Simulated assay, not measured.
Amino acid sequence: MGNVTLLELFLEFLKIGFFMFGGGYGGIALMYKELVEIKGWVSNEEFTSLLGIAESTPGPIAINSATWIGYSLGGLPGSILATMGVVLPAYLVILTVVTSLRPYMSNEVVRIVFRGINAAVVALILYAFIKVAKSTLLTSVGFSLNLIAFAIFIVAFILLYIGNQHPIIVIIVSALVSVLLKYVFGI
Rank of each mutant, 00 (worst) to 15 (best):
F150C: 06
L160V: 02
S174F: 02
I168A: 13
V141R: 15
F150H: 03
F150R: 03
Y183P: 03
Q165R: 14
A120G: 13
H166P: 09
P167A: 14
A175P: 02
S178M: 12
V173Q: 02
P167H: 12
S174Y: 02
S178V: 01
L181F: 08
I168M: 15
K134Y: 06
L147M: 15
V122F: 12
N118T: 13
Y183I: 13
A175T: 08
T139M: 09
V184N: 10
F153T: 03
N146Q: 08
V132L: 10
S135T: 14
T139C: 05
L137A: 04
I152D: 02
N164T: 12
A175N: 06
F157N: 07
I168D: 14
S174N: 06
I158L: 15
L180T: 08
V141E: 15
L147N: 11
I171K: 00
S178A: 15
I172Y: 03
A151W: 00
K134C: 10
Y183G: 05
L176H: 06
L138Y: 01
I169R: 14
I162F: 11
L160W: 00
A123G: 11
I125S: 05
G163C: 09
N164H: 15
I172D: 05
S140M: 07
S140N: 13
L160A: 03
S140K: 12
I130M: 07
A120W: 04
I148K: 06
G116Y: 01
F153N: 03
V177L: 14
F150L: 14
G142F: 03
V179K: 07
Y127G: 06
L176T: 09
I169H: 11
T139I: 10
S135E: 09
S140A: 12
I171A: 02
F153Q: 03
L137C: 04
A133D: 08
L138R: 00
I162Q: 15
I125C: 10
A133Y: 01
A123F: 07
I130E: 05
K134R: 12
V121I: 12
L124T: 03
G142K: 10
L147S: 10
F129Q: 11
S178R: 05
A123M: 09
F157Y: 13
N146P: 01
S144D: 15
I158E: 15
F157A: 09
L176S: 09
K182G: 08
